[in-house]
Write a protein that binds this DNA or RNA. Sequence first.
DNA 1: CTGTTAGCGCCTTCAC
DNA 2: GTGAAGGCGCTAACAG
Lengths: 338, 338
Amino acid sequence: MKPSIKEIAKRLNIAPSTVSRALNDKHDISQSLKEKVNAVAKEIGYKKNSIAARLVNKKSNTIGVFFLSREHINNEENTGFKYVEIILDKIKDKNYDLIIFSVDSDLKDKKKYIDICSERQVEGAIFIGLEDTDENTELLRNIDVPTVILEKRVSGKNISYIGSDNEYGINLILDYLFELGHQDIAFIKGPNFIECSKDRFNAFYKRMTSLNLYKDSFVKEGNFRLKSGYKATQELLNNDKIPTAIIASSDSMAIGAMKAIEEKGLRIPDDISLVGYDGFEIGAFLSPSLTTVYQDFQTMGIKAVETLFSMIENKESSVNLVFKPKLIERKSTKKIFS
Amino acid sequence: MKPSIKEIAKRLNIAPSTVSRALNDKHDISQSLKEKVNAVAKEIGYKKNSIAARLVNKKSNTIGVFFLSREHINNEENTGFKYVEIILDKIKDKNYDLIIFSVDSDLKDKKKYIDICSERQVEGAIFIGLEDTDENTELLRNIDVPTVILEKRVSGKNISYIGSDNEYGINLILDYLFELGHQDIAFIKGPNFIECSKDRFNAFYKRMTSLNLYKDSFVKEGNFRLKSGYKATQELLNNDKIPTAIIASSDSMAIGAMKAIEEKGLRIPDDISLVGYDGFEIGAFLSPSLTTVYQDFQTMGIKAVETLFSMIENKESSVNLVFKPKLIERKSTKKIFS
DNA sequence: CTGTTAGCGCCTTCAC
DNA sequence: GTGAAGGCGCTAACAG
């Protein structure tokens, strides 16, 4: 049996409530008693049962993190985990526990996220890369606990959205490629059930169509992973007409693309220019180094936590934060001479 | 006020305990009553307060995951998160919550992991990539909750160890390089406070020394990250005598090394052979593709969860599982002609 | 089958 | 300053 507050009380011949107050360093307890209580607590190895404390305080001190599971999307450089890492780090100074759930369609049938939040008495929730379905949107819109969602636009009383401006990012790339003289530009999109991947493709489609440059055969779909970028590029290069530039909507897919291009005996950037998306550190180390769009995951993760806590603690209302990504020009892109 | 069990009881004019039993689908409650209770529960949006349930049941249904934080080690391909991902996935069918903590030296001063486990009434713990200090070893040896530790050998009544045979892995590489005729072999070690990185270096040192091939100037230290591999290799290549092969004790550092080698105007594998360690998927997509040692993180992560639950649920005793890594021969290594 | 009672471990009134 | 009493929301034990 683990020692409880009663045990300490008995040993000191005082009331349990007094022990509780001493342990919690309340000001109506004499210093000497506090010391005695703490000494005994230490001696018998007393540790507060946070479950009991949470029950009486009606405060769970936990926040829930939900992110899209590996079955659906698991790029080598898992974006979701980048966030988790930052969130964990940022939350350390707060006295909150973080319970983490991976989300997939199985879960939907069993327990809704909302139920989990409710049962666990979670005080705040963060969703990362949630699948973009109407059902999810509807579910979250009415969530009754302060919530931050990353990379999927949902608005509601208790829900803040933090994301990156994907249309802006894609146009950054297109502006740059046009400037270099490219017109035959291929696009490797991400999976359709991820909002940001839809956004990126839509931005590409919109801009290219408006310029009469869009071609269906120059668009392939991947799943953000290395191999899918590789395969998509193989298909692209088997066309009669080959693009002069390829945009991959993730760095991982761009790396896969590099491999396929190389295997085809083509050179980057001489024969074909390549642009990634994400801005992972590894892009700088590839050969050639990868031109890409940098998203500041660090800042977004930190903002997610700050936003959540200002909603929880200061009762501030929900916000929408959209960050602008930046183009990083490196060696995988080149001016075209035609 | 959230609806409680009492609210349902009142509406139905029955006892709260009856409601509890109905909700928990006990067999001593009539089907009709269960249906009525569930209907009302749904109607008023009742959700069980798991904190209260956990208090009476004296069962927290949570396991704690602790892993080394980003300040100390954060390779692009974060090994720790690979485990977390697998653990999450594996734990989904169990009815357990997972609370996650990142561990750094700050934490040591404030709250010990053991205290956290104790306060949260955690039923099991998993440690990933814990810093290798005597203090940690001692602390964990006496932990009183079923625990699995990955990649750091600690033995104790309640603690299972799961890891990879690093000495074997390094010898796999050395056997292979010797076979290719290499003798001037450099080594980029990882940080000393990580046990597996010490093990890898020690294995290298032992073997090389025994063959009279060891040279201090051929050893550099990195921190498992891309950039450190890059810098270490730069230093290596500024020596008077240049190695014919480099072993990086992580794939990330190997990628950094590639960059440095290329910048120096040397070719892989013609001028210099390069071997990584980890076996991340990306190695296959680099050019040249990277010869490396593959560690089956997937299996180790799954085993960690299985082991933990057999300790928790079946009261089985602790075990030590050591997995053998495999050599993956790719294009970054080549026979030497001297 | 269902109600009554008691209590999980802690904390917050309210007395004294 | 400290003690006594009550209760957080739920469930198990015992009655009937």
